[in-house]
Design a protein around this nucleic acid. Structure first.
Lengths: 138, 138, 138, 138
DNA sequence: GTGGTCTAGACCACC
DNA sequence: GTGGTCTAGACCACC
């Protein structure tokens, strides 16, 4: 699990780490019982302060996705993948509602919003395939 | 500029006021240099405490949309309309990107996401027309 | 009196106009009884909204430097130059105190602060002489 | 981090708290990811209302120095120390430029401005040492 | 009259 | 327990 921190991203660093782990759990890259990289390892790899990673792991524990065992590390909980699916469904609804509201306030037609979604999806598609190629060549 | 506070709305009161002003700036109802209603006026009209309105105006100042002048009032800044457009445009883009990412991680087809958007827009439409009827019957 | 608005300047536009007029009064370019350019003229020349200029003139009246006469225009008050001198003395003290405090908080030696003041003064000197040349060639 | 509120200081209490935290970040006493004392703790220690501290923490979040997490606490952001340096550096430059301009308009020689800075610095020095003695005698 | 600050006390959401 | 929001009421600075 490589975590790529984008400092220009307005999203706080610790949440970017949380998202990366959630994604790994959602896709099955991390399964129940799997050990996450140590805080120290993530800090070095992502070039952030250890405190920040510690904060991310605490957040993940609060979400019920992992459990931290002092001395041994951080592990994906048995309920992790299921919780992650549940969290995500309501998150999607929230985002959709807020997006529709903002678009409405900007006097944007629903069709225009749909177009932005479509373009965003294509961009994600391209990035994914590029990343796949990049990783192959590493 | 009439501000209608919806107490059943989970969005905090002070943010509902912020949104109302942002909308007025976005639509051109409020132009650079225009004076906003005084904090006391808004408090009475919207039936909220003066402190709550004060917090909204502070937030609007932090967004660079207005400036508050002790002894004179609150005025739309020259950069207000432009900032508002920028803020809103980038906010919509951010939301769309995050929505698409979450949908992708949930293995949701783009068509499904579109459907959720469509339903959310219809729900907003219904709420708006119900609110309009309510005002007519008052 | 040419007013040059710098939109990239964090200082609000209306305050930039206020400062320009104060400067003109301080230097004697505007004397008691002199008529200021009309709001409309300043708005066109400085490329800002008329509301903004209106706000600046109101502020100048509050400072006791000018008086606005509906239908005839805005004039420098008799007490203008003196009030301006008084305002400026206390303003300099305020700025010096805040500068020293910020420098202290940044662990900056007084000598370093002095150097910054010196450089700023030289920069102002250069700008002034350049502007003088520019105006000669106009 | 002990926060000493000076009730005789014209600077608002909530800004005195903001300054104390900024200082801690500037000096490295608080590092990215570090948890600030809770709002309740600061309120008790500094003998101010919880709302006042809450306002300070909100301001610090607007400055991009910390992030507040409901249920967890307030943490220094990864970009905190850098933002703090930038904010302070540009603030000092702004103040110096404005001071020099005001002094110039008042026909004040640079030497005179320097003297005012020097006196202000000595006054601050005396206040600090008096405050230090006060604490020793408590 | 205008916005700015502060307290006391309450209730809330998330944890 | 943590921060977030809100009210009621007070006093202030600047106007």
């Amino acid at each position: 699990m490589f975590i790529d921190i984008d400092l220009s991203n307005p999203k706080p660093t610790y949440l970017q780490i949380v998202d990366a782990v959630r994604r790994a759990i959602a896709t099955g890259a991390l399964e129940p019982g799997d050990k996450l990289p140590t805080i120290r390892e993530v800090a070095i790899q992502a070039r952030v302060n250890r405190n920040t990673v510690s904060r991310s792991y605490l957040e993940l524990e609060h979400l019920g996705l992992v459990y931290n065992r002092q001395g041994s590390g951080c592990f994906v909980s048995d309920e992790g993948p299921q919780r992650e699916r549940e969290n995500r469904g309501s998150r999607i609804q929230e985002l959709a509602d807020e997006l529709v509201l903002e678009a409405h306030l900007a006097d944007q037609a629903v069709e225009e919003t749909m177009k932005i979604i479509q373009q965003s999806a294509e961009r994600l598609q391209n990035e994914s395939s590029n990343r796949a190629k990049g990783h192959t060549n590493e």
